[in-house]
Nucleic acid binder design. Structure first.
Length: 789
DNA sequence: TTATGCATTCTTTTT
DNA sequence: GAATGCATAA
């Protein structure tokens, strides 16, 4: 662990610099593959540098080469470089690539990581300065909300009108701006019905007593410490000789201050970013940070990377055309040596289901090779959506046709209920003071402890000034809780004590302990007895959790890791199409990209425009830009005329971004099927006058027939293929099934009947796994067998 | 205390 | 259409 330890760091380290033996002679082959701009960015080691790197211009290459160069020339040792990224994935990739460039493993770049992971490391050393102990816990959003709910209730505020989620957002915002309760400007006094500031202060107090902090605190506390303790700041300023920041356009004020404080020493700060890819304004990111860089660091060298190595000329031109609609850009002109390639493809559909169906067919076609193109791997295709609820239509469809897919970003592993429950048990075993963990699992599994029992425990704890576990102990000993609940609580407390001593004794590994805890607490049993279809999956996840523990030395280490890691890279061997949000796609690239749902209100998102006006619209436009520039060869944009919104059918207009696509670089595909041609005629029409065309398209959606259907409330204008084929049978026509029958379900595909309970069937679906389904949605497989899904 | 059914709100985007 | 919260019943 070549960390930044007091000894390690300041006793000018006996460790030799990488270079001292052979610096001058050391070859620099890594410089050869760079273009002039990249090379300039790599070689300008000293002083502030702003690298404006457009999409696909080899930014990571430049950044990693720069680090390799720093190490190779002996300007800095691995632990004197602070390299900050936003995601763990980016940090990992960076480490690997630096190692690759140097042809050796870079053992420990201890200060390469996300803002958050680096701040945790720092804060553990200085926790006492902000009233925490070094072993503080990091709350996740769930805990945070629960805590705020309590505070809101205690303040006699109607949680319905002023929900905890809202307050949590307000507080997050303040933290992103680096405002503590003490430094909160008066302009914020009215927030949360005027009670915001006071609740913020209470919340921070409460965190302190819980020895906990939330995500925003990690940054905020460090900024506070740096601002108040000159000696500490100086220490780090001196230590970090070189600072590198990835995705600078996404930094918020707190991160910006943190960086500026640290960089004030050597002034060797290199920020990499692209103002056109700033898509996190809603999370407090300030594009202003990047626009202002030259003012903040006078004499900064600005390098522009503009040669794109990723996309074809048409795709690049389409993206440039869209982003040109934004004001106040730093200005970059991306170019490529690649020639034309395919134009961006544009297609409209009747509704979201049809869109999903079409995309599925298109993917299958690409997989087997079309239009003179060789077959592509599913791994090379991605569907990028604006909002995660759009994913559903695709999942349903792909499940039906058995097309393998992976979803990036959905509910993450560590956010799942069973995992969080298990973790609460672990947390409580490690530290009985973890009140939030206790609250989470007192009655999970059911122990007969309801609200009233919990209240009794809380009162006892408060009266005696102890933790909830201690309160529970008192309740048990005094017999304050009677009956089943009392017994359950006694067992829980005894269990916690037992596990704690057992863990201490170290007779068992922490992995074994985890198993013991889940077993003895009755948690595993709870899911074994659970008959819902999700139960087996949850048990699987628990197993996976225990397995994940193996790579850690102890429970504490694992808990720490989990609170920061939000990755869910599942590197499964099978080829799969990727489905994810546009936000999640930043930094990634795929030969073929589908961009569905380009409809006004959905994309650009109505909410974004309502809340942030032109600024919001411009951020949406950048999101469009990010989406298009993910594509290397084929980019397909689509929109639907009708879409379910809140379960209600709504007619949609094509996105204004569709009109902003430069016609010369777009090929309009005529939609297949009955309604497909209704929005704009030929490619020529579209090319000639996109604006006029928009009107005609809109008219098509406002046709009398369409209006009539709306009025009738029969918005499902077109029968589904199954309805058309007479495959949807009504409830009165339920045929009877027996165990072992092969059946078909429009959503889950083919399967086998495993069991029958009344009108519900337990079915093991070939693709979708075990489900319980009402029999009226099921058809015998034979009947569906000739359906070409 | 828990289970159930009804009504309500809502869905951007996430370290 | 799903998830949450609330009221009522068991």
């Amino acid at each position: 662990m070549s960390d930044f330890d007091e000894n390690d760091a300041f006793e000018a380290a006996a460790r030799p610099r990488l270079s001292e033996q052979a610096m001058a002679a050391r070859p620099m082959p890594y410089l050869d593959g760079l273009n002039p701009a990249q090379r300039e960015a790599v070689e300008a080691l000293d002083g502030p540098v702003l690298m404006l790197a457009g999409a696909g211009t080899g930014k990571t290459k430049a950044l990693t080469t720069r680090i390799a160069h720093l190490l190779n020339t002996g300007q800095a040792r691995t632990n004197e470089i602070l390299a900050v990224t936003f995601t763990n994935k980016a940090a990992r990739e960076m480490k690997e690539r630096v190692a690759g460039l140097l042809g050796q493993t870079v053992e420990g770049m201890p200060w390469m990581g996300t803002f958050h992971s680096i701040c945790v490391k720092l804060l553990r050393r200085h926790a006492e300065l902000v009233g925490l102990k070094t072993n503080f816990t990091i709350l996740d959003t769930d805990d945070q909300i629960r805590l705020l709910k309590q505070l809101i209730a205690a303040a006699n505020i109607d949680e319905k009108r002023w929900p905890a989620r809202l307050l949590s957002g307000v507080i997050d915002n303040w933290k992103n701006r680096a405002w503590t309760p003490e430094t909160l400007p008066s302009s914020e006094a009215n927030a949360f019905n005027g009670r915001g500031p006071e609740l913020y202060a209470q919340y921070q107090e409460r965190l302190k007593t819980l020895n906990a902090c939330d995500f925003g605190d990690l940054l905020l506390h460090m900024v506070t410490i740096f601002q108040k303790h000159d000696d500490i700041l100086t220490k780090y300023q001196t230590w970090f000789k070189y600072i590198l920041v990835d995705e600078y356009q996404d930094t918020n004020v707190a991160q910006y201050l943190w960086l500026r404080l640290l960089a004030a020493g050597h002034r060797n700060i290199c920020c990499v970013g692209d103002d056109d890819q700033s898509i996190y304004g809603w999370r407090g990111a300030e594009v202003g940070n990047i626009l202002r860089f030259e003012k903040d660091f006078p004499g900064a060298k600005v390098v522009r990377l503009e040669q794109n190595y990723r996309s074809t000329a048409h795709i690049l031109a389409a993206a440039s055309g869209v982003i040109a609609g934004n004001e106040g850009r730093l200005g970059k002109e991306l170019w490529t040596e690649a020639d034309g390639g395919e134009k961006v493809r544009l297609i409209g559909h009747w509704d979201g289901d049809e869109e999903a169906r079409w995309v599925g067919e298109e993917i299958e076609a690409m997989q087997s090779g079309t239009r003179g193109r060789a077959g592509m791997s599913l791994d090379d295709m991605a569907i990028l959506v604006r909002a995660s609820h759009q994913m559903r239509a695709f999942e349903d469809r792909f499940l039906t046709i058995g097309l393998p897919y992976r979803v990036i970003g959905g509910p993450r592993f560590y956010e799942r209920m069973e995992i969080r429950d298990a973790m609460a048990y672990f947390r409580l075993t490690v530290s009985q003071n973890d009140d939030l963990a206790f609250e989470r699992i007192v009655n999970t599994p059911r122990r007969g402890l309801g609200d009233k029992a919990v209240q009794t425990i809380q009162t006892l704890a408060r009266q005696n000034g102890v933790s909830l576990v201690e309160g529970a102990r008192i309740a048990v000993e005094s017999g304050a809780i009677k009956g089943k609940g009392g017994k359950g609580l006694a067992e829980l407390v005894a269990g916690l004590d037992r596990w704690f001593t057992q863990l201490r004794a170290e007779d068992d590994t922490h992995v074994e302990m985890a198993e013991v805890i889940l077993e003895e607490s009755g948690y595993t049993e709870m899911w074994l007895n659970d008959k819902t279809p999700e139960a087996p999956g949850r048990l699987e996840n628990l197993k996976e959790l225990v397995k994940a523990l193996e790579s850690f030395e102890n429970l504490q280490g694992f808990l720490e890791h989990v609170s920061l890691i939000m990755d869910n890279d599942t590197d499964d061997a099978e080829e799969k199409v990727t489905i994810m949000t546009l936000h999640a796609a930043k930094g990634l690239e795929y030969p073929a990209v589908f961009l569905p749902g380009w409809e006004d209100g959905l994309f650009p998102s109505q909410r974004s425009m309502d809340e942030s006006g032109l600024k919001g619209l411009e951020e949406e436009r950048r999101l469009a830009y990010v989406g298009i520039t993910r594509a290397e060869e084929i980019c397909t944009i689509s929109f639907a005329a009708n879409r379910r919104v809140y379960g209600q059918w709504q007619s949609q207009l094509p996105s204004r971004f569709v009109d902003e696509l430069p016609a010369d670089h777009v090929e309009v595909l005529t939609a297949p099927g009955l309604y497909g041609g209704g929005y704009g005629g030929t490619a020529g029409d579209f090319g000639a006058s996109p604006l006029e065309d928009k009107a005609s398209r809109a008219d098509a959606y406002n046709s009398p027939g369409w209006k009539r259907m709306q009025a009738q409330g029969n918005l499902r204008a077109k029968p589904s293929p199954n309805e058309a084929r007479g495959l949807v049978i009504d409830a009165t026509a339920v045929s009877s099934f027996t165990q072992g029958d092969r059946v078909f379900h429009t959503k889950f595909g083919y399967g086998t009947v495993m069991g029958i309970e009344g009108d519900k069937l337990d079915i093991e679906f070939d693709k979708a796994g075990a489900k319980k389904v009402v029999s009226k949605f099921i058809v015998p497989a034979a009947q569906a067998g000739d359906v070409p899904f």
